[in-house]
Design a protein around this nucleic acid. Structure first.
Length: 310
DNA sequence: TTCCAGGGGTAGA
DNA sequence: TCTACCCATGGA
């Protein structure tokens, strides 16, 4: 299988892949030098294929060593368009960013797309594994989940060392909590189990989160109902879903805002929103792609001046 | 040893 | 809605 998929311009493959940490988590493997992303993916019919995705002048080019049926091919195309946000139009964001020196780089670098997983379950679990843990721990936990519960490739591949797809809800739902405890998931174990079992027995339907017609706030409320998903995780997932009204305020966000806008004094969510709130429906993108480099450590006075301008 | 991480759930106000 | 407290695990 080989397929070119066009993207709504501007598009940059490497910017999209590295837009946030997902490309470092199993079962994704990214060859930064060759700019090839490898992703084992389990199709709806259970078959696990390896996808190799590269940059293309018009978007991306995807290949798989496996022969696909027309239905499988269609599924892969749809999942790739979702994963790389090929259809998103960020021109409104760029129009705003052009006038902010610390965001003006976004248009030329095609910043703004936040890489997604192909299934919502994978994204929810990944975000869950970022809570109250260091990034190295997130990588470890997601790696263990894939290793332990992921389905192996249907056809052996040599291009990558990752040979399993991300686990399905039912694969996780079928295990005991103590099994997960053994993986070092800590207090996240019961949340993950509850999520997986909820999906497996149709009590939880993640597909509603793809509904573009649904307003952001009701969507956020639904996300907050998921086990193990609180304000930070919901905001992060909203960003992945293409809604940027909320900022995933984690220790890093607090630290950056404290350092660069409040002279190092202790701040919270309120202060993060005080700084980035003016970006309206693009708050999360403004924060995430903000160029903090070279910023003076204590421009709290500059911020106050800026605030009185607006 | 202590603190804390890309926080969430719960109880009580 | 806000706060205090507890939650497991591993890294620094």
């Amino acid at each position: 299988m080989q397929q070119i998929l066009t993207a709504h311009p501007p598009f940059n493959f490497d910017s999209t892949v590295r837009s946030h940490g997902w490309y470092q988590l199993a079962p994704i493997q990214y060859d930064a030098e060759q700019k090839v992303l490898y992703k084992p993916e389990q199709l709806d019919n259970g078959k696990v294929i390896l996808l190799e995705v590269r940059e293309h002048s018009e978007g991306i080019i995807a290949a798989s060593p496996t022969q696909l049926t027309p239905a499988e091919h269609a599924e892969v195309v749809q999942k790739l368009r979702w994963m790389f946000l090929l259809d998103i139009d960020l021109s409104d964001f760029y129009a705003l960013a052009d006038h902010e020196p610390r965001l003006a780089h976004c248009r030329s670098k095609a910043y703004g797309r936040l890489l997604r997983s192909m299934t919502l379950f994978e994204d929810v679990v990944r975000v869950m594994m970022t809570t109250n843990i260091q990034w190295s721990g997130t990588k470890r936990l997601v790696g263990k989940l894939v290793e332990h519960f992921g389905t192996p490739l249907s056809q052996a591949a040599t291009a990558t060392t990752v040979d399993r797809a991300f686990p399905t809800p039912s694969a996780i739902a079928a295990c005991y909590e103590v099994t997960q405890r053994g993986l070092g998931l800590g207090y996240r174990a019961p949340y993950l189990l509850k999520l997986a079992r909820g999906i497996a027995n149709n009590e939880i339907n993640l597909e509603v989160f793809r509904d573009a017609q649904m307003a952001t706030d009701p969507l956020r409320k639904e996300l907050l109902k998921l086990p193990g998903i609180g304000p930070y995780a919901a905001a992060t997932l909203l960003g992945i879903l293409g809604r940027y009204d909320y900022i995933g305020v984690d220790s890093e966000a607090v630290s950056s805002v404290s350092r660069y806008f409040y002279g190092g004094q202790a701040v919270g969510e309120k202060e993060v929103y005080a700084i980035f709130g003016k970006w309206g429906k693009y708050k999360a993108l403004a924060y995430w792609f903000w160029d903090f480099s070279g910023m003076q450590r204590s421009p709290i006075e500059q911020y106050d001046a800026k605030k009185s301008d607006s």
